[in-house]
């Protein structure tokens, strides 16, 4: 079984993010990293390979030149090789364009199972896995809290309101994985060194047969018209508890009509 893991290189969540004049996130101004939520998918793929369930694991990303650092991090955790789709025309692409490019790249790499994180930690949309599934006409099992693969079937556990659901589907399929799965290992020095020898193939949009006019900021069907800082909440009343904290809090809640 061949697994392709979709990963994203995102701005460091703890950094101060800026927006460029075209209202896209200024990725050049911030340190980047492999999205923490994608690391769960990378770890799952590595485990499936170690267990002998997966014969080959490939990491796939779409992003600027620096995104290769995210692929190298994934390759230090496991896997055999990586694919980096990079093209200046991708700047400002929305989820529709990103999913189109990922689907084209997946057709090129081939796959039995596609794994992803539950969301990127930058756009936080959680829509790309379903979009890729739709474009490729394959089964999907998203927001998997746990995952198992047996024969040609993938089974997941998914949290829903009032119940934990078990869902099964036949391969080929795409599965997105939540952060209740095992955390990624910390790669050993030896693994980091070995990962530098793993091949990373770079594709342009032309290599994938994607018309540059169907991606990028100009093709996006959503135009961001303004980005402003969230209005700061007005400073509240903070009191030390000198034995009356509970009663004072009750008085406040009562004044707001909650008690």
């Amino acid at each position: 079984m061949k697994i392709v893991v979709l990963v994203k290189y995102v701005p460091e969540p703890t950094a101060t993010w800026k927006f460029a004049p075209d209202l896209t996130l200024d990725r050049g101004a911030v340190e980047g990293r492999l999205s923490e939520l994608d690391e769960y998918a990378v770890e799952q793929a590595a485990r499936l390979q170690e267990a002998g369930t997966a014969s080959e694991v490939v990491f796939l990303t779409v992003g600027p030149a620096k995104a290769v650092d995210g692929l190298r991090k994934a390759l230090a955790i496991g896997g055999d090789s990586a694919v980096h789709v990079t093209d200046a025309a991708m700047h400002g692409s929305d989820a529709l364009a990103t999913s189109l490019v990922l689907a084209k790249a997946l057709e090129k790499t081939g796959f039995d199972l596609v794994l992803t994180g539950m969301a990127s930690t930058d756009a936080e949309m959680s829509v790309v896995p379903s979009m890729v599934a739709d474009r490729l006409g394959i089964n999907q099992a998203t927001f998997a809290g746990a995952l198992s693969v047996e024969g040609g079937t993938v089974s997941i556990k998914r949290d829903s309101e009032g119940a934990v659901l078990e869902v099964s589907t036949a391969l080929p399929a795409i599965v997105s994985i939540t952060d209740t799965n095992p955390e990624a290992r910390y790669p050993a020095f030896k693994a980091i060194m070995a990962s530098k020898k793993k091949p990373v193939t770079t594709y342009s949009l032309a290599d994938l047969g994607v018309d540059a006019s169907s991606v990028g900021l100009a093709a996006a069907a959503v135009k961001v018209t303004s980005v402003t800082p969230t209005p700061a909440r007005t400073a509240g009343t903070i009191v030390p508890d000198e034995g009356e904290g509970g009663a004072q809090l009750a008085e406040f809640l009562s004044s707001r009509g909650f008690v």
Binding site: G236, P240, D241, G245, G246, A247, A250, F252, L253
Partner: peptide
């Protein structure tokens, strides 16, 4: 909007009583 600096295991039981 309102904060109490203190031990929640003292403040919350007092709050529950008061409610």
């Amino acid at each position: 909007d309102y904060g109490v600096i203190g031990d929640l295991h003292k403040v919350l039981p007092a709050l529950i009583d008061e409610i």
